[in-house]
Design a protein around this nucleic acid. Structure first.
Lengths: 186, 186
DNA sequence: GCTAAATGCGACAGTGATGTCGCAGAATGG
DNA sequence: CCATTCTGCGACATCACTGTCGCATTTAGC
């Protein structure tokens, strides 16, 4: 390969395959060993180590990659958009990349202390959208953000879960949206 | 100790303490080592091994114990009880034993192939209650059991999760009940 | 076709968890 | 008070995963 920083072509594809494999396995079992990830990605363990020197490197890379997926799959909402519609888009986008989301949120303190993990101050994440939705009455006043946000990801998680079974993904997504909207209603 | 099968007294308490410790740790990290569980249970690793010969033995014991908790904490509903009320009692009972529930349902195929894991045939688990609730109109006709059941445990999981934080347990339970009932409404 | 990069294979030592012991002290029950 | 049981401590071999090599082979670029 050339000396450029940004990988592309075959190398980028291999890297993506490894991240996909890691997300798929670590979503279910965060203790899945490197060997299993390599096998799933159809690379040798040696190659995996050439892309990611150690476990921490792969965890970090998958963390930022998953966050990119989550944000990138869902363009920022216009400030005049209905916040509940924005949440719905965010939910549907998340279901499309289920493994990444499960990896991110399966264990709430998996990335505690990781500099790449977004701090959960009130200006980040879902909070502004939830606040706006509550101001509009789409979320009942007595539902705290902690519950709304956790339930959001639980519903997302469930949809990703169910669509791995016999419920088609689009149907799971519809059910998820419907369940979340009704859950939040006052 | 005598030769009786059923343990009681101090030995039963030690056993229960170990199971509690395992549930608490494994709920967050299933790869938590035996040493950590022993420490949390305030027993030596040797003693832990005297109660449960190997990891699999403890996993199995915790599985059946958690299922017992889940079912036992919730007396069978009278057949004339409103099915949605029965589900609510089941949900509230589950939240009381959050760690056990998280341990049971954090990874849907953690116990795949385990003979103690209830087969998901339609005559078991929540299915009869869900069917009755749907017949009464408390659950919309177009919500499949797969979604209802998975969402039930997701809501339960979320309540257990949130009540480990700054939301008091009774409030989390109320939010969970409310969210589930509204999610299912037609 | 030639060169350089990328990959697979196998080996290696290091590490942490596991499961098994024996022994000595503490707790328990008659 | 004595015998039995339970427990903690530390040692031990074993195992699986990890991270690092060197070398041979394949692949890709010019």
């Amino acid at each position: 390969m050339t000396t450029e920083q940004i990988e592309r072509g075959a190398r980028a594809r291999t890297r993506a395959a490894i991240l996909d494999a890691a997300a798929a396995l670590w979503a279910r079992d965060f203790s899945a060993p490197f060997g299993a990830i390599a096998e799933r990605a159809e690379v040798s363990r040696s190659t995996l180590h050439r892309y990611f020197a150690d476990r921490q490197a792969l965890v970090d890379a998958l963390l930022v990659d998953s966050l990119d997926h989550l944000n990138g799959a869902d363009p920022e909402s216009a400030s005049d958009e209905d916040p509940m519609d924005a949440l719905e888009r965010h939910l549907r986008a998340g279901i499309e990349i289920g493994d990444r989301v499960i990896f991110l949120f399966a264990d709430p303190d998996r990335f505690a202390g990781n500099p790449n993990w977004p701090a959960d101050d009130s200006s980040e994440g879902l909070t502004p959208l939830l606040d706006r939705a509550r101001a509009e009455g789409a979320i009942a006043a007595d539902i705290p953000n902690a519950w709304a946000e956790n339930l959001f990801y639980a519903v997302l998680y469930t949809a990703a879960e169910v669509s791995a079974g016999d419920v088609p993904r689009h149907m799971a997504a519809d059910l998820a949206v419907r369940s979340f909207r009704r859950s939040m209603a006052g």
